[in-house]
Design a protein around this nucleic acid. Structure first.
Lengths: 338, 338
DNA sequence: CTCAAATTTGAAAACGATTTGGTTGGAAAA
DNA sequence: TTTTCCAACCAAATCGTTTTCAAATTTGAG
């Protein structure tokens, strides 16, 4: 059913019908009601492509998905979806070609030029992120999930990674730990730098010298957690505590500790960061896992919200949200054994 | 840059340019080359919305995302993305409103009517799935990821859940186990029925009577695995083996076993189904986890491929792929202890 | 009761591509 | 030489909306 047809059935012009449905003021309430009602009854629905062509709006916001298939991606998306449910806006998932650099720039450029999205969400930005510069230059609205130091105005939402790790580390120091290992994310992303900073600051402020051997970084897999923890704990001067970075690495760390006949929450304390997954909870681990917590799903919801505001004209200049992170203490952290 | 403008710069008509770029035969090779080259140089790119309006193609395939934020969703998507990278097709993620029934039908209906997608992938179908009937009725191309008994012709791709669980269970029986518990997915979905069937058949063919107490079902969370395994193992007549359903429930089961001072691969054997995640591998669990394995990512890739074929006219009638599942034996399965 | 102002409605021109149904000029066939 | 055919190109219609500008209708003041 097309507009023409539908309008004819109502004995109205396409103009009026279009206006009635899009909520313009210059149509009487009585006809608006009638149009709305009949639209449902006869099943009229504007052709989305025609609308988009005419209005120039794409009706979608783009999310570039890395190749790694990060496990928190689904949660973030679910959060976005929740917010966009009532909106007439889609989520467009754009696969990232290669981790290759030029290619990624090409990807963003093409995405903008093809006008398939009204805005883009940029994940895991780097301190000096070309994507941000590019999007800004191209005039595409975008929201950065994470932070960047780049000298280009942009909207962002991030969690306080630095503070989270600082508090986690400090707490371990409070418990008497001095050899504290740390598993970070892939080097390059700002959040990894922030975590590193939080870790260093906590140590430094308590006069503990940093041992570079105690730091690892890479994708948040259980394997990384296992290998690193295991190799450290086998050494002569093992750490007594580990800041594990993510739920998956924490699983690996737990396994490593057990495999050596040690016990988490006794010989080794562990704190991880918990993005809050429905299928794997810190509370349920054994022993329950102390964690810095921040809901990835909530972040997705809020990001969607902010992007909608961005699209409808809000300036990116004053969109800067830094979410605090809670530290929840459970059984995996305990005073250092002597 | 619009087509008009671009064509004028080349001294050609929009017609010829359009044809040159879309690979029509009635344009000379030399002009085609020139057009292609200049398009890159001047940065001309057809407006996607105009193309879609004119051709009636949406250039996107829809995937409805459940609210649960299942952890395998990201992998499936990553797989799809891989295939669609070179194609000019987007993935549209549609949030599912409520698990409420009517709403879901509404969702699909609206999705089809709004013409935002060229095809839809339906996940976790039920034996008699109204969504399938609806999509068929509405004439929207779709691919079912999973199977349905519904009496409507449709394309599908599924893994052999029944065979996988049958083999897993049989193997446990071969090892001497007779009390074998089973954790299934949410009741209702066909795959859960298939798994149940595989389980029952394996038992029956070996003359083992089924104990309904040994079966659980629900979302694949570590919590479910833990609670169920724990409660069973505390009983007077505990199972000696558990078919754990998923990696996450397997984690819970492992925890439960350990929490009771028992050992996986000794007092209790465990087999799970592994969708192959980069961040959590069966091989890395301790003890390493015997698993039926089938790559979710590969399924995503293939589904994308099939959907593309569907869109370009291939009949759904002969698209039926049943993927075999490998059973990989590791340390978590061992002969029953006596 | 008139006339201007305010409220509703419509006709037609976009939006930016694709595609139908021609032209055109030159080579091959008669 | 004339006719036929083909390759290469183009003008204009079209996809289904939104929106500008103008017309018709109603309202309210004088």
């Amino acid at each position: 059913m097309k507009l023409r047809e539908f309008a004819k059935q109502l004995g109205l012009s396409p103009t009026t019908v279009s206006r009635a449905l899009s909520g313009y003021p210059e149509v009487s309430e009585v006809t608006r009601a009638r149009v709305a009602e009949e639209a449902v009854r006869l099943g009229y629905r504007p052709n989305v492509n025609a609308v988009r062509l005419k209005t120039g709006r794409a009706g979608a916001i783009g999310v570039v998905m890395g190749r790694a298939g990060e496990f928190h991606f689904a949660e973030f998306m679910a959060g976005m979806a929740e917010r966009l449910l009532t909106e007439d806006t889609d989520i467009l998932v754009i696969p990232m070609a290669d981790p290759d650099h030029n290619d990624e720039m090409q990807l963003y450029r093409r995405l903008v030029e093809s006008q398939r999205v009204d805005a883009i969400i940029v994940h895991s930005p780097r301190p000096n992120d070309e994507r941000i510069a590019l999007l800004h230059k191209l005039g595409m609205p975008f929201l950065v999930h994470g932070r960047s130091d780049i000298d280009v105005p942009h909207a962002w939402l991030d969690i306080d990674n630095e503070g989270a790790v600082r508090r986690a580390t400090s707490h371990l120091i409070d418990l008497g730990h001095t050899r504290i290992a740390m598993i970070n994310g892939r080097p390059g992303a700002t959040y990894a730098l922030h975590r590193d900073k939080g870790y260093r600051e906590a140590l430094q402020s308590r006069g503990i010298e940093l041992d570079p051997q105690l730091i690892a970084s890479g994708n948040f897999t259980d394997e990384l957690g296992f290998r690193f923890a295991r190799s450290l704990l086998e050494q002569s001067n093992p750490p007594t505590a580990i800041v594990a970075g993510s739920m998956m690495t924490a699983l690996g760390v737990y396994r490593a500790v057990r495999s050596l006949g040690l016990q988490v929450g006794r010989e080794v304390s562990v704190i991880a960061h918990d993005d809050v997954f429905p299928y794997l909870t810190a509370d349920n681990m054994a022993p329950s896992l102390s964690a810095t917590r921040s809901s990835m799903r909530a972040a997705g919801t809020r990001c969607a919200d902010l992007v909608l505001q961005l699209v409808s004209g809000r300036s990116p200049l004053d969109i800067h949200e830094l979410w605090p992170v809670e530290l929840i203490l459970r059984e995996s952290t305990a005073p250092v054994q002597r």
